[in-house]
Amino acid sequence: METGTASQDDAVGEPVWTGLPPGLLTMRRLLLVVWLGLLAVAAGVLLGLFAGPGWAAFALLPAVLIVWGWVGLGRNWRSWRYAERADDLLISRGVLWRAETIVPYGRMQLVEVTSGPVERHFGLATVQLHTAAAATDATIPGLDPAEAERLRDRLTELGEARSAGL
C-alpha cells in the first residue's frame, strides 16, 4: 500500500495511491462476527428448542458465513484506494467488479466528513464528495479523522480554485 501527498505523480505520470487504514477492516470484521455470531446463537437455541437438536446444526451456517465474510472483507478493504492528482481525485475499489471514479476538482460542489457512532468508536471518518451529477458522487470510507479533514479542506480549496476559472 503506497501513500503520498496530493498531486505527487512519479516520472511516468502514475498516480500515488493511498490505501485505507486498517481500523476500517477491524471495525467491519468485528461487526461481522458480532451480528452473525448472535444470529448463530439465536438460531441454534431456537431451532434446538422448537425443531429438535438435529435442526440446531443449521446454526453453523452463520459460522460459515463469518469465515467467508472475514476473507471477503479483507479483499474488499485492500481494493479501496484513492489518489490526488493535479486536476482530479481518483477513487478505486472493488474485488470482482472493479470501479474507478474520477472526480474533477472543478465539478465538486460539496465535500462532507461524517462519522457515525461506530466509526467514532474506532476513530474513523468518511469523506463524501458531491457533484452536480448524482452518478459521480464518491465516498472514501474509514479514514483517520485528521486525514479526512485534511482531504476535505484540500478538495474544497482545489474545487473553489478550479470552479473560479470556469
Rank of each mutant, 00 (worst) to 15 (best):
W80H: 03
S7A: 14
A161S: 14
R78D: 15
A148P: 01
E2A: 15
V33F: 04
L166E: 10
A164M: 09
E157D: 15
G19V: 08
R75A: 11
G13H: 07
R152G: 07
A63N: 01
G142R: 02
T101N: 04
T126D: 09
L143Q: 02
E160M: 12
A138H: 06
L32E: 05
G94V: 10
S92H: 05
E84G: 05
L20Q: 02
T3R: 11
V118Y: 00
G116C: 02
A6E: 07
T126A: 05
L60V: 13
V71S: 08
R29L: 04
F122D: 01
W68F: 13
A161G: 11
M1A: 10
L20H: 00
G72H: 05
R81W: 06
A133Y: 04
T3P: 03
V103F: 05
T126M: 09
D10C: 06
V67N: 05
L38V: 12
L110I: 10
V64R: 06
G74R: 03
L110T: 12
G13M: 10
E147T: 13
I140E: 03
L46V: 14
T18F: 00
G165H: 15
A134R: 09
Y82A: 00
T26E: 13
T18G: 00
W77L: 07
V103Q: 00
V33I: 10
E160A: 15
P53Q: 14
D153Y: 07
W97I: 14
S7M: 04
Q109W: 07
T114Q: 14
S163L: 08
I91G: 01
G74D: 10
T136N: 15
A138M: 09
T114W: 04
Q109L: 09
R162S: 11
A51W: 14
A6K: 02
V45L: 14
V64G: 14
D144M: 01
A164T: 12
W80Y: 13
L90D: 07
P22G: 11
T131Q: 05
L110C: 10
L25I: 12
G37I: 03
A6Q: 03
L124R: 02
R85Y: 10
L151E: 00
P104Y: 07
V127N: 02
P104D: 07
T26R: 13
A164E: 15
L47S: 08
T139Y: 00
G116H: 11
T156L: 11
Q109F: 05
L46P: 06
R85G: 08
R81S: 12
L32F: 05
G159W: 01
P53F: 15
G72Q: 06
A6C: 03
R120P: 01
I66Y: 05
G54T: 10
L47N: 04
V103W: 00
A59H: 09
A40S: 12
G23C: 04
E160G: 10
P141S: 07
P117I: 14
E157L: 13
A161P: 06
M27V: 03
T156K: 04
R81E: 07
D88P: 00
V64N: 08
D153G: 11
S115V: 08
